[in-house]
Simulated assay, not measured.
Amino acid sequence: MAQSLPTRELNALRGLFDKVQFSADEVVALDYRVIRRLPGVGPKGIENIRHWLEAQGLYPENWPHNGSAAHRSRHHSRIEAAIRLLEDHGYEVVPPAPRP
């Protein structure tokens, strides 16, 4: 069953479970934070794992809907925090001019 995963994700999950064979049920039961910290697996790899699970008819409930969306949300929060900091210190933050 795990053969349809790309090699990088397959090997990362094998290392996590410390066994060669594992089931999609074992993977879907993992917390997203565990998946996110797999060595060598980034946002694209997480999406590969998600698509593999969905192909098995499993939908991880404890994972964000889209890993890259979670990154964008964190990035947006940091930008908002930076803007607040600048405004708190008397700076005026204006939106960028539209591109031609």
Rank of each mutant, 00 (worst) to 15 (best):
12 A>N: 02
44 K>M: 09
90 G>P: 02
27 V>I: 14
42 G>V: 00
28 V>H: 06
88 D>T: 15
69 A>M: 02
1 M>R: 15
5 L>W: 06
88 D>Y: 07
85 L>F: 14
53 L>G: 01
96 P>E: 11
66 N>D: 13
92 E>K: 09
73 S>G: 00
1 M>N: 15
64 P>K: 05
55 A>D: 12
96 P>Q: 14
87 E>L: 10
83 I>Q: 11
5 L>C: 03
16 L>V: 04
86 L>V: 05
43 P>S: 07
90 G>K: 04
92 E>C: 02
23 S>F: 11
86 L>D: 02
64 P>W: 01
18 D>P: 00
97 A>D: 13
83 I>Y: 10
73 S>H: 03
41 V>C: 08
10 L>I: 02
8 R>F: 02
22 F>R: 14
30 L>E: 06
34 V>K: 10
67 G>H: 03
59 Y>I: 07
20 V>W: 12
56 Q>G: 01
97 A>Q: 14
1 M>G: 15
86 L>A: 15
2 A>M: 12
29 A>V: 06
50 R>W: 00
17 F>N: 08
41 V>Y: 09
53 L>E: 04
21 Q>L: 12
74 R>L: 01
80 E>N: 11
3 Q>F: 10
28 V>D: 01
33 R>S: 08
85 L>W: 12
95 P>N: 15
55 A>L: 03
98 P>C: 04
99 R>K: 10
78 R>L: 04
72 R>Q: 06
4 S>Q: 06
32 Y>T: 05
49 I>Q: 00
66 N>A: 12
92 E>H: 08
29 A>K: 11
80 E>A: 11
47 E>L: 13
58 L>R: 15
3 Q>H: 12
6 P>S: 05
27 V>K: 04
77 S>H: 14
56 Q>K: 13
16 L>T: 00
95 P>S: 15
76 H>T: 03
69 A>T: 05
64 P>F: 03
12 A>M: 01
44 K>T: 11
67 G>E: 03
17 F>T: 07
